[in-house]
Amino acid sequence: MAILSKKDTKLITDPFLDNNPITIQVLGICSALAITAELKASIVMSISVLFVLGVGNVVISLMRNIIPSKIRIIVQLVVVAALVIIVDQVLKAYAYELSKTLSVFVGLIITNCIIMGRFEAFALGNGPWRSFLDGIGNAAGYGFILILVGFVRELFGSGTLLGFPVLGDPIEKSGLYSIGYENNGFMLLSPMALIVVGIIIWVQRSRNASLIED
């Protein structure tokens, strides 16, 4: 029961590890650094990008034969911006609470170069279905790293996961804190996100030698 052919499956699975947008293609770094101090924000951002990249890739792919090559970047940017604004406005009208959670990410999604990068590299040259899969795959790979970094930073930085204390209470000195453990507030600062991603790259490339740069 293969719904997806082998080539199509590869489109989704490849970006997860061997061609990960963040650690290999170097796309979407800014947002990966800005919002990963908290696991919840990482998850919300991943889902938003999944949506925008999936739909955006299809739209661009459908338009690929009529877009004038001279102004293709403008067209791509306008498509992303319009998509994001539409979603933002609709949410504000019908799901206000949700829109408040997302409003922080609106700007970050538009400027997220993973979206432009995939439009340019894939959607402009492929059909809608394949572009959709590529979008989903890349967004998932991106989200995977985001959630990983968010997990590490929130756990060691604030001792919580998704806002729930998992290591005990630092003020009451319960749980781990009773034996002298301290939160590493440094983890919450953005430079640490860079270092965590650096370490993820290290681990990933030690496991797969073919990715090592000369």
Partner: peptide, 22 residues
């Protein structure tokens, strides 16, 4: 270390530079 060459070390160096800039 080989796996850290290129992108990996760049990330870490940038992180250290950012701490400096703070």
């Amino acid at each position: 270390p080989a796996p850290l060459r290129g992108l990996g070390i760049t990330f870490i160096v940038t992180g250290l530079m950012a701490i400096g800039f703070m």
